[in-house]
């Protein structure tokens, strides 16, 4: 990060980094997802209160839907857990020896904590249709 490396997009996709690369890519994607959601949310709330136009009303109903909420929950939870693991590894580098094990442990924590609420959210979509 923050260093100019001249690698093309396709070349980058051919690199098979397995679990650590997946964590890096997901950290980046979820970070951008949070930024997109929070940015749209703040700006839409501003225009909804200031003008009350139709566009921000539509945007508000879109991001209040359960589908978007599941996506946002995925982004926030993954980014928080992965960031916490990163900070812990940065603070105590000997843990880097168990980098892959930590990644597996992170998925072990992530899957139930994400899966259970997501399951109930999907159930609520199926029963109410929102």
């Amino acid at each position: 990060m923050f260093q100019g490396r001249h690698v093309g997009y396709l070349e980058g996709l051919r690199y098979k980094g397995k679990a650590p690369m997946l964590a890096w890519a997901l950290h980046r994607i979820t970070g951008l997802g949070i930024l997109l959601f929070v940015g749209i949310h703040v700006i839409a709330a501003f225009f909804l209160n200031a003008i009350g136009d139709d566009v921000s009303t539509t945007i508000t109903t879109v991001y209040e839907s359960t589908f978007v909420q599941i996506f946002v929950y995925f982004c926030v939870l993954y980014h928080a857990l992965n960031g916490l693991r990163l900070i812990i590894e940065d603070l105590w580098p000997p843990l880097l020896r168990y980098h892959r094990e930590l990644l597996w442990f992170q998925w072990l924590v992530f899957l139930p904590v994400f899966g259970l609420p997501a399951f109930f959210m999907v159930v609520s979509i199926l029963s109410t249709g929102v």
């Binding site: 990060m1 923050f2 100019g4 490396r5 001249h6 980046r28 970070g31 951008l32 949070i34 930024l35 929070v38 703040v42």
Partner: peptide
């Protein structure tokens, strides 16, 4: 909270941009 979050987020976006725009 929003100041800290926005600085964290937009700094991250700057990092991503510096990775892909040369």
């Amino acid at each position: 909270l929003l100041l800290v979050a926005a600085m964290h987020g937009f700094n991250g976006l700057r990092g991503v941009i510096e990775d892909y725009i040369h």
